[in-house]
């Protein structure tokens, strides 16, 4: 393998390792903020298990959760790096290496035969999203199934803008205890059927230590549900709501809701050129 692509594969492996074993500081901070406000004794006990778990994973260098997810990859590439299949091959190679070295649970199967590839790659995955940038940078977003399965998209009417918070809250209500709350909610508004879902996932990549008043309004509405940590009841069901918008057809209002468990993992590594 060409040295640059070998370095890219190593960077993917390193970003996966980082994401799987150490939670980003903004997420850990949000969990502590929620714990400090929590009044339900059962929920407080669950938070204590989460903090103990994070410490053990970090110290022992092991995955935080046994669902190490499907790996979603975001790359920025500078002008000097050509966009060729070698780039995609290097990303898949990094995933295969991480599957052995971290280790990851082999989660990728054929959608109909359910045959497991054994190395977390397969036809059409990983999804690799590429943007132009000043540096060659890898962002890894491992997505577990418990929360991903609870996500929904609705093609709303342009006259229903005021009903968006209600729709997002209803998706979380339907999900109940299953997505491992306290969750982070990514909302994609606008674009087309497919891009709304991409916006929702990209929204989950931004730090969760700040919210707009619109995001805060939806978050407060979700926390009124009382689902609580792991569905056992309590004050915090949602750590944060993050919204990403895009222009859309004058007759459309696509709204996608991508749910993320409390273990909101991401890893970022820059590749030397």
């Amino acid at each position: 393998m060409d040295p640059l692509y070998n370095r890219l594969a190593s960077a993917v492996e390193e970003a996966i390792h980082q994401a799987e074993t150490i939670l980003p500081p903004d997420v850990e901070e949000a969990l502590h903020t929620a714990y400090n406000k929590e009044t339900n004794p059962t929920a407080r006990g669950e938070f204590e298990n989460i903090f103990a778990n994070l410490q053990i994973a970090r110290e022992k260098n092991i995955p935080i959760c046994q669902d190490t997810g499907i790996l979603v990859i975001y790359l920025t590439i500078p002008e000097t790096v050509p966009l060729t299949t070698k780039l995609y091959d290097a990303v898949s190679e990094g995933i295969r290496r991480a599957t052995k070295s971290v280790p990851l649970r082999p989660n990728a199967v054929h959608p109909l035969t359910r045959k497991n590839s054994g190395d977390n790659t397969g036809a059409g995955i990983p999804a690799v999203h590429i943007l132009p940038g000043d540096t060659l940078q890898v962002t890894v977003f491992p997505k577990g199934a418990g929360s991903e399965n609870m996500s929904q998209i609705r093609m709303m009417l342009p006259s229903e803008i005021s009903k968006i918070p209600e729709f997002v809250t209803s998706v979380v209500k339907d999900a109940g205890s299953r997505p491992c709350p306290p969750i982070v909610v990514g909302v994609g508004i606008g674009g087309t059927f497919d891009s709304a879902a991409s916006f929702a996932k990209e929204a989950l990549l931004s730090p969760i230590n700040s919210m707009t008043s619109f995001e805060q309004e939806i978050c407060d509405s979700i926390n009124q549900l009382g689902i609580g940590v792991m569905g056992l009841g309590g004050d915090t069901t949602c750590l944060a709501v993050k919204v990403k918008e895009g222009a859309c057809h004058t007759a459309s209002l696509p709204v996608a809701v991508n749910i993320q468990c409390w273990c909101s993992r991401r890893g970022v590594v820059e590749v030397k050129l």
Binding site: N49, I50, I56, K60, G231, C261
Partner: peptide
């Protein structure tokens, strides 16, 4: 995540369901 109302009745008088925190694989 809990279980159904049917299981809640099946547990009655003989067994319990313990919840352990989702995601806490290392612990």
């Amino acid at each position: 995540g809990g279980m159904s109302a049917k299981v809640r009745e099946e547990l009655r008088g003989r067994a319990v369901y313990f919840a352990f925190t989702g995601g806490c694989a290392a612990l």
